[in-house]
Computed example of a mutant assay.
Amino acid sequence: MTVNETILRVTIAFLVLFLLARLMGRKEIGQMTFFNWTTAIGIGSIAGNLAVNESTLIKDGVIALIIWTLFTIMLDMIDLKSKQGRRVTTGDPLIVIKAGRIMEGALKESRVDLDELQALLRQKDIFSLKNVDYAILETNGELSILKKESEQPVTKRDLNISRPKKVLFPLPTEVISDGKVNTENLSKLKIDRNWLDRELQKENIQSIEDVFFAQVQQDGTLYIDTKNK
């Protein structure tokens, strides 16, 4: 295989894989279930063969990637529309701790031993099983925890603390990043550049380029982090 052919194959494999990954959506990355894992392995293997295996025709490799992707999308549609189909493709969450007691049958079914369970709990900052009321092993391998009521954090409602009334924006929003103004976010917030300049001048900042990061808070104030601190 010549260098030019290798470059061509790798370029085609990369572009096709990138486009098909975009087509399949973020679920393949964000929620790695058994089905997603199988899909990722298959597509990666096909793309690898297309890139470096000269016995694989470029046309055949591209067709194989497209067909695999179509199968993935079809099963995703079944997954979205049918609960029974979802059980086949992704399985069901398993309750591994119920009312503070370890469910040995669920651990065996999921092939998770006690050491692995404790490791998953520690990743959630739980070091004692007695603090757990319920624990559910999700289909993507994550462990969802419901602590016992006595271990749950106190909320503002518990303390009868009302939310501050002055909330001008739903979320903190970035307006400067690495010395550059995010004009799109300013427009969304309906804030002009003059307001931003005035806020910077209040902090004795004369140039946008001196700002590493700035974020408009929910109450309308500006958080500023300068360069060369």
Score class of each variant (00 low, 15 high):
I43K: 07
D225K: 10
L57Q: 11
N194E: 15
A119K: 10
R111E: 07
N131E: 15
I73N: 01
L8Q: 05
D133N: 11
K124F: 01
K165H: 01
K188T: 09
F169V: 11
W37Y: 14
I41V: 15
L17G: 10
R9Q: 04
I66D: 05
I66N: 04
T90M: 07
T11W: 07
F127I: 06
I97S: 07
K180G: 00
G179E: 02
F18N: 04
N4W: 15
I7W: 08
I97Y: 08
D178G: 06
F213C: 03
I224C: 04
E151P: 00
D60I: 11
L222A: 06
L222F: 09
T173S: 11
R157H: 10
G141H: 06
N194C: 05
Q118H: 13
Q31C: 07
A51P: 06
S207E: 12
P172F: 14
E104F: 05
I63G: 03
R26S: 12
T89V: 14
V96W: 06
I97T: 10
E142W: 00
E138T: 05
I126K: 02
D158V: 10
E203N: 11
D79R: 13
V167N: 03
E109L: 13
S128F: 04
V175T: 09
V88K: 08
K130E: 15
V175F: 01
K202A: 05
F18Q: 03
S187D: 07
A106K: 06
M24N: 08
L75T: 15
L189I: 12
N185Q: 10
G105H: 08
V10R: 11
W37F: 15
A64I: 12
E54R: 07
V132M: 05
V216Q: 03
D113F: 12
F18R: 03
R157A: 13
L186C: 02
I224L: 04
A99I: 03
K190C: 03
V154F: 01
E116H: 05
E203G: 03
V211F: 04
L17D: 04
D158G: 06
L57H: 10
Y134W: 12
V211W: 02
I63E: 00
Q206E: 07
I58S: 01
I136G: 04
I73A: 12
T183A: 05
L57G: 13
A64P: 00
L50S: 02
A214R: 04
I66G: 03
L200C: 07
T11V: 14
W68L: 14
E104C: 02
T11A: 15
V112I: 15
K83M: 06
T72L: 13
K124V: 01
L114T: 13
W68T: 14
K180L: 05
T33R: 07
R26N: 14
I41N: 03
E209C: 02
I102K: 05
M74W: 10
D60V: 12
M77H: 09
I41K: 03
D76R: 15
K27H: 07
I208F: 09
L57K: 14
I102T: 09
T39L: 08
I78T: 14
K166C: 02
Q118P: 00
K108S: 08
M103V: 15
N49V: 07
L114R: 08
G141I: 08
D197V: 15
I126W: 00
T89L: 14
F212Q: 07
V10S: 10
D92W: 11
A47Q: 07
L189K: 11
E109D: 14
V132E: 01
I161E: 09
N49E: 10
R87V: 13
F14A: 12
F14I: 13
S162E: 14
Q206D: 06
